[in-house]
């Protein structure tokens, strides 16, 4: 027993209080099922933890499914000719709604701006030209560079998503720069204003890319 270091008068008073409290609260402190109750409590707790875990894993599954669904929508835009034509698997840009190889044997060139007398900006002006069959344009018309060609063409959703999560593929410091690219890059914006439009509006497209990333940037199954 620990020694109580109180003055004798206080000791009497405190002891009395404890005894009285013991009498008043004894039915609660020592109920009939004094052993059963903690066991039940432990079961209840374990149950709650299990349920929370299950709930969490359900939420986790739901979140992952939503992330994948968001990517599936965005993928349709990435693979639309307006986007994919500048992300070809070869070294020539593609053109038109059928994504045919650019006429005139145009080549990417090391900086993505063409080669020799065949530079992109030699024909593509700072703005679209009025009239049939005239080249579209903005100030920064170009392809990704030869060193980092960022190929979309031929990629499955899973392969493309893996690419976006790899800074060697994108050249972006982190995946959030991808959002910045799809949200603000002038060439990306141009794709939503010229010719046959991608299947989502630019706003919805950006929202779906953000959702994919915010919900864990899950890799599609295929």
């Amino acid at each position: 027993m620990k020694k109580i270091r109180y003055a004798p008068a206080s000791r009497v008073w405190i002891t009395g209080t404890i005894v009285a409290a013991g009498i008043v609260f004894s039915p609660f402190a020592f109920p009939e099922n004094a052993v059963q109750e903690p066991v039940n409590l432990a079961f209840t707790l374990a149950d709650t933890i299990d349920r929370t875990k299950a709930q969490n894993s359900n939420e986790e599954k739901k979140r992952a499914a939503e992330s994948k669904a968001a990517f599936a929508d965005a993928y349709k835009v990435f693979m639309h000719p307006r986007c994919m034509n500048c992300h070809p698997s070869g070294d020539a840009p593609l053109q038109g709604d059928k994504s045919t190889i650019h006429t005139m044997n145009v080549q990417r060139g090391p900086d993505g701006k063409g080669l020799f007398a065949m530079k992109c900006k030699n024909c593509h002006q700072d703005a679209n030209l009025e009239g049939e069959h005239l080249p579209p344009g903005i100030e920064t018309w170009h392809l990704p560079t030869a060193q980092r060609p960022m190929v979309f063409q031929g990629k499955t959703p899973r392969q493309l998503a893996m690419g976006f999560k790899d800074s060697a593929f994108t050249g972006f410091k982190d995946i959030h720069r991808l959002v910045e690219h799809v949200e603000t890059d002038h060439l990306v914006l141009h794709s939503f204003t010229y010719g046959t439009r991608p299947p989502l509006s630019h706003k919805d497209f950006v929202a779906r890319v953000k959702e994919w990333i915010d919900k864990g940037a899950e890799l599609p199954d295929k």
Partner: peptide, 18 residues
Amino acid sequence: GVAQCGACTVHMDGEAIR
């Protein structure tokens, strides 16, 4: 007249523009 043939090629600041 529509950037398809190259007959009009001149140089602008060292690039072969149409």
